[in-house]
Design a protein around this nucleic acid. Structure first.
Lengths: 346, 346
DNA sequence: TACCTGGTTTACAACGATGTAACGAACTGG
DNA sequence: CCAGTTCGTTACATCGTTGTAAACCAGGTA
C-alpha cells in the first residue's frame, strides 16, 4: 500500500539499490538477466521514482512556471496552451501562476519563493516596474513575455512583438478603408501598462501618417482589458459622438465594443469599423468576424521555452531579445464593401 | 552566487543548522536575540528553502495537478482559473496537464508517472473508460471532474452537475418559447463521450415531455466541441431543413452555430433560437447574447479542492459524489418578443 | 549545595535517489 | 600463467531539510 522505493525493488529482485537505479536510468552495463529480474520487480510493485528525491539530487525538477495575469483571458489561455506544448516537447511540466496583473502578486512571483521547485520561469507581467525587476536575485532563469519593462538594458531574455508597428499597421488599415474619426480603446492610467502605451503610439503615428486628425476625445481609457471594459468604453465614445472606426488594443476589448455597437444599432463595418489585437479564437466566430493583429503565439511560446532551455544548459551570454512576427488578419469587421478589394487573409 | 543552504545561513549566524530551520519554520522556542541574528543572515544571503528537499523530507510537495483536455476551451480555462484560486487559498500550487481529450495521454495522467511530484490530482477526463480507471493504483488521491466514468461504483470522489436535468430544462425552455423543430448539436460517435450522451438524454426527455416530435435528422453529430464543429454542424442542419431552435451541448458549439446562422441570414432568435451550455464569458458578449446553462464553476472548483484536501488529510471513507448546482441564463438568443415575458437572469 | 524545571540549542538520522570509486570475475594478450 | 583490461555490480557519500532525542543553561526549590 505504501509507495515502494528503490530499496523495496532491490530486495525483491535480490540486487543492490544502485543496480535498480541503473536499470531505471537505462545505464548500459547491466546484464540482460539482471535487467529482466529488476524490471519484473518494478512491474510487480509498480514502482515509480520519487521526483522530489531526484530533483534534490539532481538540482533540477523538470518543472517550469508560467506566470500570467489570468487564464480567463483567452489570449493568455491560448498562450498557455502553446507554452505547455512546447515545454512538453522538452519533457518539462508547467506550473501556472495567476497574478491578476496585481503588482504585489507579481512581486511574489519574481521573489524566488518557488525558486527551488522550478527550474525556470516564464513571466508575463503587467504591473511590474523596472525597480521591482532590478531587485530580483537572478538564480532561477527567467524569460519575460509581452512588454519590455523599464528603460535600460534588462538582464533578462525577452520575447515580444513590435507593438508600435503592429498598432500602426492596424490603424493605417482603418484609415485606408476610409476611417476619418478613428477611435482607440485601451489606454490605461496606471504607471505600468507599457503595452497600452506602445499601441497608442503606433495608433498616433498612423493617424499622423495618414493625415487623419488626432482627436483626443476619441481615445478611450479603460481600467482593464476585458470585454466589459470594451463595451463600456464604446458606450462612452458613442455618447460623445460616434467614430467611424475603432482600434481596440486587444480582442476582448474589441468584442465588448462590438457588442455595444450592435446593441445600439450601429452597422459594423458599415457605420463603424472595428479592429482588435491578439487573434483569439472568439474573434473568428463573432459576427461580424473580427479583424485583428495576429501575433504568432506558437512561435512566442516556442522561443520563450527555447531561451529558457539555453539558460538552463548554462548559457550566460547577454540577454536575448526576440521579436516575434505578427500579421494582420482582415476580416468582416473592417470589410467595407466597395472600398478596394478585401484582403481577408483567413 | 550559488544558492545558499541552511548550512550557509547557520555559519554566517553562528548557530546550528537546526536553529536556522527552527527560525524558518516559526518554531516558538527561539530566543529573540538568536532569531534576529538568524533572520539577518537569511536576509543577507537571501536564503530560500529548497522545496525539493522539503518535499522529500515531508512526503508532500504542495503541488496538485489539474488535467484538462485543453485550455483553449474557455470552459476549461475558466475552470482552471477557479481551481488555481481555490488551491491558492490552501497554499497549493497547480500544475496543468493538457490531454487533448486523447485517451493515451489521459492514461499517462492516471498512470502515476508524476505521483511523486504531486500530492493529488484533479482530473477532467474525456476519453477514459472505466477499465482504464480500474487499473490505476490508488496511491495519489484523485478527484474526477465532469462526467462519471464507467457504470459501477467508482472509488474516486467526483464533482459534476446533473447533465440530464440541465439539458432537459434547457430544451424545455426552447419548447416553451415556441420551438417545434428543436435541433441538438453535440453528440459524438466515440464510445466515451458520456457527457454528450447525458445531455442528449435530457434533450430527448424534454421533447417527449413537451410533446414536440423527436426528429432524428435534427440531431447533429460532431467530432469535437469547438466553434468550428458547431458552425459546420449548423450548416448541415440548415441544408437539411432549418430548425426553429438549437440546443448546443456547449457554448463554443453554440457560438459556432450562431455564426453560421447569422452568416446565412437567419434571424436569431426570430427565426432560430440558440441555447448553449457552460456560460462562458464570450456568450455574454455575443450578439445576440447567448442563453445557456450556467454551472457553478467556482463551486465545482472549490468542492474538488476540498475533497482532495480531505483525502490528503487522511480521509478514507467511501467516494463522495458532489452534484454542483446549475441555473439557466436566459439571454437574447432565446428571447422571442411577444412570447411571454423575458426571464433574463443576467 | 544538590536537584529539578523548562526554555533553548544541538547532533544525528532519516527522506529516496544517483555519482563516484572500488570491487570481483571473466576475459585478453604476451 | 600473470598483468592488464573490461564488464557487472556494489558500498558509500551526498543533495537540503526536518523530526527526535538529548545536551545545555539558566533560575527556582528543597
Amino acid at each position: 500500500m505504501v509507495r515502494p522505493r528503490l530499496k523495496d525493488v532491490a530486495e525483491l529482485a535480490g540486487v543492490s539499490i544502485k543496480t535498480v537505479s541503473n536499470v531505471v536510468n537505462d545505464y548500459p552495463h547491466v546484464s540482460d538477466e539482471t535487467r529482466a529480474r529488476v524490471e519484473a520487480a518494478i512491474a510487480e510493485l509498480s514502482y515509480r521514482p520519487n521526483l522530489s528525491a531526484r530533483s534534490l539530487r539532481a538540482g533540477r525538477s523538470g518543472v517550469v512556471a508560467l506566470a500570467v495575469p489570468d487564464l480567463d483571458n483567452p489570449y493568455f489561455a491560448e498562450l498557455a496552451t502553446n507554452v505547455i506544448e512546447a515545454a512538453d516537447r522538452r519533457g518539462w511540466t508547467v506550473l501556472i501562476d495567476q497574478t491578476q496583473g496585481d503588482r504585489a502578486k507579481e512581486r511574489v512571483v519574481i521573489s524566488g519563493i518557488r525558486d527551488h521547485l522550478i527550474d525556470g520561469l516564464l513571466f508575463s507581467p503587467l504591473a511590474l516596474t523596472g525597480k521591482d525587476l532590478a531587485g530580483r536575485d537572478e538564480r532561477t532563469p527567467m524569460v519575460l513575455l509581452g512588454e519590455r519593462i523599464g528603460t535600460g538594458r534588462s538582464p533578462y531574455d525577452h520575447v515580444g512583438i513590435d507593438n508600435v508597428a503592429a498598432a500602426r499597421a492596424a490603424t493605417l488599415h482603418l484609415a485606408e478603408r476610409g476611417g476619418r474619426r478613428i477611435a482607440a480603446i485601451g489606454v490605461q492610467r496606471t504607471a505600468a501598462a507599457a503595452t497600452g502605451r506602445l499601441r497608442l503610439k503606433g495608433y498616433q503615428q498612423a493617424l499622423a501618417e495618414a493625415g487623419v486628425p488626432a482627436d483626443p476625445s476619441l481615445v478611450a481609457p479603460v481600467a482593464r482589458w476585458g470585454r466589459a471594459d470594451g463595451a463600456e468604453a464604446m458606450s462612452r465614445l458613442l455618447d460623445a459622438g460616434a467614430p467611424d472606426a475603432v482600434f481596440c488594443f486587444n480582442d476582448t476589448l474589441a468584442l465588448g465594443a462590438l457588442r455595444t455597437l450592435l446593441k445600439r444599432g450601429y452597422a459594423v463595418p458599415g457605420e463603424v469599423m472595428v479592429m482588435g489585437f491578439d487573434d483569439i479564437q472568439d474573434g473568428r466566430f463573432a459576427t461580424p468576424t473580427l479583424s485583428t493583429v495576429a501575433p504568432d503565439k506558437a512561435l512566442i511560446a516556442q522561443s520563450a521555452v527555447d531561451l529558457l532551455a539555453e539558460r538552463l544548459s548554462g548559457g550566460t551570454g547577454r540577454a536575448h531579445e526576440v521579436c516575434a512576427p505578427h500579421r494582420l488578419a482582415f476580416r468582416e469587421s473592417t470589410d467595407v464593401p466597395g472600398e478596394g478589394h478585401s484582403r481577408t487573409l483567413n
